[in-house]
Design a binder for these strands. Structure first.
Length: 336
DNA sequence: GATTCGTGGAG
DNA sequence: TCTCCAAGAAT
């Protein structure tokens, strides 16, 4: 290895101590529970987005026992708007599992953590390192980018084989001590210095060791590949408003927005009912063009319920549905 | 291995 | 507005 692991570790640790982030909410009075919650929330989600959710979550479910004892509706309500809702249900499952089967102790080793629902290879290593300060390898988007540039790793690192290769490379550079600080250092370097665009190479402690920097190819790594444009789907929803509130439907577990409360959805368009409004929404894998009908009849096998307006803040609703409803309740259309 | 799963920050 | 992509995991 051209770059000695001992040197790399020393650089990352020293840089983290001096320039890394130390004021994130989940870094204060660290407990395994805080680390678990934060790591699940941070999956594919930016730190800035997570912080207010994390604060509210800890206020509502201060420890793993309170989460285990919570009702699913409360859990989904607290997660609403954060996306990837299976994370919330898995976290709830995990809390029950840990409280009832593991005497409240969150597992410590990556292997044991992998048995936990919603915990994959990254999160297992992260919890081990951050919660217990024990050796845990982490490969996320930050680490992938940093190593891709440091060693000019070519090709698509997202394939199974290349990802395993990258994982083993990072593993060889992961120390057996100072695990928490090292893991934080990797993430902080990726998030604040080795950024996707306009990286701050002048401030990077690894500048002289970085192959991409030396070849002036930093912006070419990690190599990007074209993705096909997102398909567009249509959605048809019903908003039935009365003085008593609005009717919502709890969505089935096998749809987008599983088990959230949303406007009842029609399988087809309704050419009879008046159109109240439309909205567009972009998911990770398709675009939604939605039509909302006013007072359309619908039949459903799902649970439906009428909610008063002031109840809506306490239930888990998809972000775009909530936005649409708020717009039309605050500024009701008078075009009928 | 390819798909599915949300939402919003930032350029 | 459009694009990339974010402390990924499950199926």
């Amino acid at each position: 290895m051209m770059l000695k692991p001992e040197y790399f570790q020393e650089v990352v640790l020293n840089w983290q101590a001096q320039y890394g982030r130390h004021d994130l909410p989940w870094q204060q009075h660290i407990t395994p529970y805080k680390v678990l919650v934060s790591e699940i929330m941070l999956q594919q989600t930016q730190v800035k987005t997570v912080i207010p959710y994390f604060q509210r979550w800890l206020a509502r479910f201060p420890d793993i026992a309170s989460l285990a004892a919570a009702a699913e509706d409360d859990v989904m309500s607290c997660w609403q708007g954060l996306g990837y809702y299976s994370r919330a249900r898995n976290l709830h499952k995990t809390a029950k599992y840990v409280v009832h089967e593991l005497a409240g102790e969150i597992p410590k080793t990556p292997a044991e953590l992998r048995e936990v629902p919603g915990v994959g290879p990254y999160t297992a290593g992260a919890i081990t390192a951050f919660a217990y300060n024990e050796p845990g390898t982490i490969v996320d988007g930050n680490v992938k980018r940093l190593f891709a540039r440091l060693f000019e790793l070519e090709g698509n690192l997202n394939t199974g084989a290349r990802h395993r290769e990258l994982w083993e490379l990072v593993e060889r550079y992961t120390p057996t001590t100072n695990n928490r600080q090292f893991a934080q250092g990797l993430l902080d370097l990726g998030a604040t210095i080795c950024t996707p665009r306009q990286p701050r190479c002048q401030e990077c402690p690894l500048q002289l060791k970085c192959k991409a920097f030396s070849h002036n190819t930093v912006n070419e790594f990690p190599q990007r590949f074209k993705k096909s444009p997102l398909p567009t789907r249509s959605g048809y929803f019903v908003l039935n408003k009365s003085d008593a509130g609005i009717v919502l439907e709890q969505r089935p577990a096998d749809t987008i927005w599983p088990r959230l409360w949303a406007l009842p959805e029609l399988v087809d368009e309704d050419t009879e009912a008046p159109v109240l409004g439309r909205f567009k929404h972009t998911f990770s894998h398709y675009k939604l063009d939605a039509v909302v009908y006013q007072g359309a009849e619908f039949k459903t096998n799902n649970l439906t319920k009428r909610f008063a307006i002031d109840q809506l803040q306490d239930i888990g609703m998809p972000a775009p549905i909530r936005k649409f409803i708020e717009q039309h309740l605050l500024k009701p259309a008078d075009n009928n």
